[in-house]
């Protein structure tokens, strides 16, 4: 089931759920999810980063996991007064200022097209653009790492041009290779594990994203800027 689960957590469902005000809900007994209101944009994510830094210092919190305009806070023990926790988190969100994380810039050399770009044709059909145009739009973009997750070192990149947004597949590719440069909805990223994947591949990058034995295992960090450099274009 491993494979099916991974792919399905990336598959696409109906319309995006946009909250009008901050939404805080438990996941089990020790974790709370704080979902920011409003759009999927850098301004909101900067407040999530600020919230992460604040909540990460709380004595009773052992782990913070920033997501896409949301934050999961995991508490050391089951809170005695969950309502008070929700109130504290809500207050922390209200007070969260925008943080401009000064990240590094990562340049990723990409072979666009070729054997790994299995979804480039479908993206041409969807967007009405020629393959060269899609590649140009993709590598001319400047992307921000919003959060890491899903697989070790995988960065969710924000900043994809709306002309080349492409919904995740309903039926995922069973064995997409690690290194595939992919588009999932309004996000782009580089696959870090070989396996089932519902994102759409348009190229390949031969850059290891994760080394468990390194002092800093993940290459990417939230706030980093990513640029894709077209090393080769095979059409």
């Amino acid at each position: 089931m491993n494979s099916a689960l991974q792919s399905m957590t990336r598959s696409s469902l109906g319309s995006p759920l946009v909250r009008e005000r901050v939404h805080i809900s438990p996941i089990g007994s020790r974790a709370f999810l704080i979902e920011a209101p409003g759009g999927f944009d850098l301004a909101t994510q900067r407040r999530i980063w600020a919230l992460t830094q604040d909540v990460g210092h709380w004595d009773d919190v052992i782990e913070t996991v920033p997501g896409m305009t949301n934050l999961l806070a995991i508490f050391r023990v089951v809170p005695e007064d969950p309502q008070a926790v929700v109130a504290r988190l809500s207050n922390a969100w209200d007070l969260a200022q925008s943080v401009d994380l000064q990240g590094k810039t990562i340049e990723i050399a990409v072979t666009y097209g070729g054997e790994h770009a299995i979804d480039l044709g479908a993206l041409c059909n969807l967007s009405g653009l020629r393959d060269r145009e899609i590649i140009r739009i993709h590598h001319e973009g400047t992307y921000t790492v919003f959060a890491l997750g899903s697989a070790p070192g995988f960065g969710y990149l924000h900043g994809l041009d709306p002309r080349i947004h492409m919904p995740r597949k309903t039926v995922p590719s069973l064995k997409m290779e690690k290194g595939c440069v992919t588009i999932g909805g309004m996000q782009t990223g580089v696959a870090v594990l070989t396996g089932p994947n519902g994102w759409n591949s348009i190229g390949f990058a031969d850059l290891p994203m994760f080394d468990p034995t390194a002092a800093t295992p993940a290459i990417m960090a939230p706030g980093d800027i990513v640029r894709f450099i077209p090393e080769r274009i095979e059409l």
Binding site: L33, V65, P66, N70
Partner: peptide, 16 residues
């Protein structure tokens, strides 16, 4: 109605 969530952190025991 169908919903599409933004990716978020999860813990073991979540029922999706």
């Amino acid at each position: 109605a169908p919903v599409e969530m933004r990716s978020h952190g999860i813990v073991a025991g979540v029922v999706q």
